[in-house]
Design a protein around this nucleic acid. Structure first.
Lengths: 299, 299
DNA sequence: AGATGTGATAGTCACTGTCTATCGAGACAG
DNA sequence: CTGTCTCGATAGACAGTGACTATCACATCT
């Protein structure tokens, strides 16, 4: 059975006239005669009683026509919904973001994203890198904002902007009187985030391996880390976008001698069909953050 | 778009695997690949993200699949309902019956009809001949039980049984002492039904034209006519099936010299597709009334 | 009786859905 | 890291079928 035939049937039922129904369907009258007869044979039921005067539905047809209308309506709905989904820059877009980035980046990019991609319904999902990659591979995310590159050929990524690190110091810290701080100076009493945060590894890499870390004091989140620094527990590196929050917490920030930093990237599955949406989101973020690294350098 | 393709799509969505989905659909794997790709093109939406590991639905597919399931379910319902309607001896059967026949015939045939045609849901409709023919032609009835033949090539009919007339007399009427009554004797003070009843015309034909009729006393129904005869207003002819009712009313019945009577027929539209149902109903009635005319002759 | 209008039928053609055979990309084991 | 296996995509051939035009059969109306 065929959807086209169902439409033919509805047309004949509505017009009560093969010729006019055929015209309405844009086909010839014999086509309708043949197809409807064929349909009657497959269903095993006579659908119309034909006279030269009129074509009248049988009671069997009356019983069926509700389901026929419903079937045609549903397929119309399929096409209509698909038309609405056709735009890759529309619909739900699940975007993972690492915790050391989300609270500082999102306030900056929400407005431009809404302006430039009004039909894209972005659902942020905050989690650590490995969890994001897992969800990305499991199709639970459409893309993710990371500060590391991705592994494996099934994922692709693209750099969006460079985010310099800054030395974060308690106001009374000796280094606070320096204009520029070196990572080696910072390493002495550095604090880091808990396991799993990529910022932790990046901080350790920048400041050299340090078995001397205060093991008990690993902050679970960046705000906590900032509070610990402000309270004089030690120093740390913070990503540039967190500068405002750090200063609000009463922390002194200094540029690093080596201009260390991290690159924020957007990552997605290589086979993800809505790559246009990924690129568009990436474009908006990259544009918004253009020149950010240089601006941080002038702190 | 095609219903077959929708089923293919559901199969792939369910199995997450083109090969197994193809097997489930009874087609080859390339068929599914081609058809689903074609569908994606017509809908303008990518439905599946293919990996060598798995085939995962896109969010667009998730949005569509409800409608797709509904469309397929509705077409399945069409086939299922049609299967139930396929039997011409099942379903609603609207049967018109003339008023001078209905109350006396129906009690006789209801039980055998229900026994022999249990799936046929007979809806009786009582009205005069012309109204029945009108409704029959308007497809408001499937068949009609009449005491006249039908006119026009669009209707067919078949005789079911002969129904002799009987002379109906008040007990004190002079003719009541006769064993057999002639129509001419009866004509003197004959009463007839109101206009529109075929029995009226048949009575008048049998007893000859009579301008001498008591014009004011035209009974609207056969029970009324019987009451009038019983009350001594005059005589009449009654159809044989009404004999029991007439005797209950206290009327004397006598056979007619000429064995006049009428033939009860079943009529239907020539193009009516469920002729088998008409014939079956006719068979049951004819069988039930077999030998009835002879039995009436022995009153 | 001829004209008109209706659905049914016949014959032809092009499209398309399906098949088999094969390719190319990944995944996995030795 | 290379051979092997699995999976989906592709190519080419073929059959089925839906659509067309032309025509018929039948009924109605003038």
């Amino acid at each position: 059975m065929n959807l086209r035939d169902l439409r033919y049937l509805l047309a004949v039922a509505e017009h009560g006239h093969f010729g006019r129904a055929a015209e309405a369907c844009g086909v010839s009258q014999p086509t309708l005669s043949v197809q409807i007869r064929k349909m009657e044979e497959t269903l095993g039921v006579v659908l119309f009683e034909r006279t030269s005067k009129a074509v009248v539905r049988t009671t069997a047809c009356e019983h069926l026509i509700g389901h026929i209308r419903a079937a045609v309506a549903e397929t119309d709905a399929i096409v209509a919904v698909a038309r609405g989904l056709r735009d890759p820059l529309a619909g739900r877009f699940r975007l993972g973001i690492i915790p050391t980035l989300a609270p500082y980046l999102l306030p900056l990019v929400f407005a431009p994203l809404r302006e430039r991609l009004p039909a894209l319904d972005i659902e942020p999902w905050e989690d650590q890198t490995v969890a994001l990659l897992e969800r990305l591979r499991a199709h639970d995310l459409d893309a993710a904002l990371l500060a590391t590159d991705v592994d494996g050929p099934d994922l692709l990524s693209r750099p969006l902007f460079a985010e310099p690190f800054l030395a974060a110091l308690p106001p009374e810290h000796p280094l606070a009187r320096h204009v520029v701080v070196t990572e080696a100076e910072l390493a002495r009493d550095i604090l880091v985030l808990a396991d799993g945060h990529c910022l932790r590894d990046q901080t350790l890499t920048a400041c050299g391996q340090s078995g001397a870390l205060g093991g008990a004091l690993r902050a679970a989140s960046l705000p906590t880390l900032l509070n610990m620094v402000a309270a004089g527990y030690g120093t740390t590196l913070i990503p540039g976008l967190a500068a405002g929050a750090a200063e609000d917490a009463g922390i002194v920030l200094r540029p690093l001698a080596t201009a260390a930093g991290r690159t924020v990237r957007i990552a997605w599955r290589a086979r993800f069909p809505r790559r246009a949406a990924v690129e568009a989101v990436g474009d908006v973020i990259a544009t918004r953050l253009r020149g950010f690294a240089e601006a941080v350098g002038t702190i």
